[in-house]
Each structure stands twice: as C-alpha cells, then as structure tokens.
C-alpha cells in the first residue's frame, strides 16, 4: 500500500500497517457486532497520536478488549492467518491492573510495531488485552503453532521485554486447543 507523501517525508514508517480493534461486551448483540475497527496506522507518530488519545486499558470496563493486529488479519481464531496459530498468554492478578497492566500492554505494543522479534516478527499476527473481573489477560498471537523455533524465540524475547523474572513462566496455547476446551483444561504447548 502506498503512503501519502507527507508520511514518507515527515514520519518514521513502520514495517507493517496495524489496525486497532475495540471489543465491548453487549450480550444483546452477536459477538462480531461488538467488535469494532478503531483505526489503522503505519508510522511511529500516528501510533502515539492514537495511543495517547484512547483510554488506557486499565480504565476500560470489564468485558472489553483492545486488539492490535496486522492490517488484513481480524482478531479472531477463525481468520485464515490465525487459525493454525496460538498465543503466548500473560495472566494478571487482580491487583496488577493498577500496577502492571498498562505498562505490560504498552511494552507489548512496542514489541509488535518495532518488529522486536527480528525476522521471527513475520510469525506475529497481533496482540489482545482482555479486561475481566476475574483477572486481566494479555496475549500475543502467532500464526503457526507448529513453528516451535519461532514460537519459543518470540516467547523468550517477549518475556525479557516485559521484564518478567526467571522464576515466572509463561505458556503458549494453540487456538485449536483453546477453541475446543474450557480455559482450565487448555493444554500448554510450550513454556518459557
């Protein structure tokens, strides 16, 4: 896709164009009707203009999500670029909403738009934050759960970038397993 001339001259371009989505749980409507595309961006400056304009994740109501995905990939398992993939999942304790949630989410976004996984960044589809009363969740989604080398590299780098200690482990789940099992039964495919 071609950028407007002003973007080329004045702003730092990103490797990918990204789309921010917002989900608000309204039980009277179908799941997909609750999912809205907020906007797309493809420069560092436009990312910050968006990020500084919207509510921090910690201020969203329970049941809401933000998702940031590469343009052209919808934030759902069914998308062809997601369906063979999975996610590295960070589960936060309730009290971490105030201390850690916004920092973790911002660092997650910066990992994505900065292509901080190097050539393995091609494996990334996006990231999701779920605001839930029983505990918030942040996940990065990759496109192929069987690519063990790429998936574990991404997991190790991600954990380091979030500043998680070595005693903490994070797990990777294939969407195919998440879709068919209840949360507590979903098997963890990889751990870092």
């Amino acid at each position: 896709q071609e950028l407007p001339l002003g973007e080329i001259l004045d702003k730092y371009p990103l490797q990918n164009r990204w789309a921010l989505w917002f989900f608000k749980n309204d039980k009277n409507r179908m799941w997909q009707a609750n999912l809205r595309l907020v906007t797309r961006f493809s420069t560092v400056e436009d990312f910050w203009a968006l990020y500084d304009h919207i509510k921090p994740a910690s201020k969203l109501s329970c049941g809401c999500d933000y998702s940031l995905f590469k343009d052209g990939i919808e934030p759902m398992w069914e998308d062809t670029q997601n369906k063979r993939g999975g996610r590295w999942l960070i589960t936060l304790a309730k009290q971490q909403r105030h201390s850690k949630l916004d920092c973790f989410w911002l660092d997650t976004l910066l990992c994505l738009i900065g292509e901080m996984f190097g050539d393995y960044s091609d494996e990334l589809c996006g990231a999701v934050i779920n605001i839930r009363s029983k505990g918030d969740k942040i996940a990065i989604w990759t496109r192929e759960a069987e690519n063990q080398e790429a998936v574990t590299h991404i997991g190790r780098v991600y954990k380091e970038r979030l500043g998680l200690s070595q005693e903490v482990t994070i797990g990777y789940q294939a969407h195919a397993d998440t879709a068919t099992k209840s949360n507590s039964l979903t098997k963890t495919k990889f751990v870092v």
Partner: peptide
C-alpha cells in the same frame, strides 16, 4: 528486504517529539 526495527528507547523518545 530490510526490516524496519525500532527499539523501545527510540519509540519512547518519539512520543513527545514535535
């Protein structure tokens, strides 16, 4: 091709630049 990679420090510095 060449990948455009930005580290965290650079991205954070861009936040408030004019």
């Amino acid at each position: 091709g060449t990948r455009i990679i930005y580290d965290r420090k650079f991205l954070m510095e861009c936040r408030n630049s004019p």
